[in-house]
């Protein structure tokens, strides 16, 4: 484990003037390995950070499966799947940008970074379309949950508000928690909305929202990398930033790999 000692001797003379080597490191390898361990610890921190939301998800899904079974049908599997594919593609280009940097393929590296940023924007664009629909149709968290149609129906057929019918006015969730709310969408059979269905959307928005913030942070990082890459700062000996950013980006992808089936693909 102790690499410090092993690299002592060529740390003093050999790389003494390496402009990329910080004064407190003995060798580029030691510096790179330190950075790598650092970014992994950061990713671990991210895992625990997201774990709170996964815990909330697990607790509510285990105790109220009917809410999840019912409400996930409001989500659009196609958009979710496309977004999964978009993120996987961006992960590929992120990984490839590291390879290109290692091999000194500057143009390819810049291309990969650009595609990664484009995919990230694509992901956010699709997410925006989904969010916009949810806002339009009242598929929101807490008291704001006021769906205009039954799951599987269409936003365009939005008619009257079923919850408002059953409860008199919104905000009655606490005092009139009737076990179920019966709603009748235009031309469809009666559907009952499980109690506290809004919890699903609270969790949905919390998870995808936090993930979305991480995507935005990733875009910022990659734009910064692009700027540095265009200045020619990266090369076969100097690619740590590219490598570490890619690791972060893969983690964002990892989270989504779980979010997709947990939110969209419930049976």
């Amino acid at each position: 484990m102790s690499t410090a000692a092993a690299h002592n001797h060529h740390g003093e003379e050999g790389h003494g003037h390496d402009p990329h080597l910080a004064h407190h490191f003995d060798s580029p390898q030691q510096q790179f390995d330190s950075g790598k361990l650092g970014i992994w610890l950061f990713l671990i921190q991210e895992v625990l950070f997201f774990s709170g939301l996964f815990c909330a998800y697990a607790v509510y899904r285990a105790n109220h499966p009917e809410i999840f079974e019912f409400a996930h049908r409001y989500l659009d599997v196609t958009l979710g799947a496309v977004n999964t594919a978009v993120l996987i593609c961006s992960s590929l280009t992120a990984a490839w940008s590291v390879r290109a940097a290692q091999l000194g393929q500057r143009k390819l590296m810049i291309g990969c970074i650009v595609v990664t940023i484009a995919c990230a924007f694509g992901f956010l664009g699709i997410k925006y379309v989904e969010y916009a629909h949810k806002f339009h149709d009242g598929l929101l968290w807490g008291e704001k949950f006021n769906p205009k149609y039954a799951p599987g129906g269409h936003g365009e057929e939005a008619g009257h508000s079923p919850t408002a019918d059953a409860e008199g006015h919104s905000g009655q969730h606490a005092t009139a928690p009737g076990a179920t709310i019966t709603q009748e969408a235009a031309g469809e059979a009666k559907v009952t909305t499980p109690r506290n269905t809004s919890i699903f959307f609270s969790i949905y928005f919390a998870m995808t929202g936090l993930h979305g913030l991480h995507v935005i942070a990733g875009i910022i990082v990659y734009v910064w990398l692009l700027w540095r890459a265009l200045k020619g700062e990266f090369g076969p000996k100097q690619y740590a930033a590219i490598d570490f950013a890619a690791l972060y980006w893969h983690l964002v992808d990892l989270v989504w790999i779980y979010l997709f089936p947990l939110l969209y693909l419930i049976r």
Binding site: F32, K36, A95, Q102, P236
Partner: peptide
């Protein structure tokens, strides 16, 4: 020789994707 970490082969990247 001069790399700081492993270089992933192109085939592998595409295969995983």
């Amino acid at each position: 020789d001069h790399g700081l970490s492993h270089v992933m082969s192109a085939k592998m990247l595409l295969g995983v994707w």
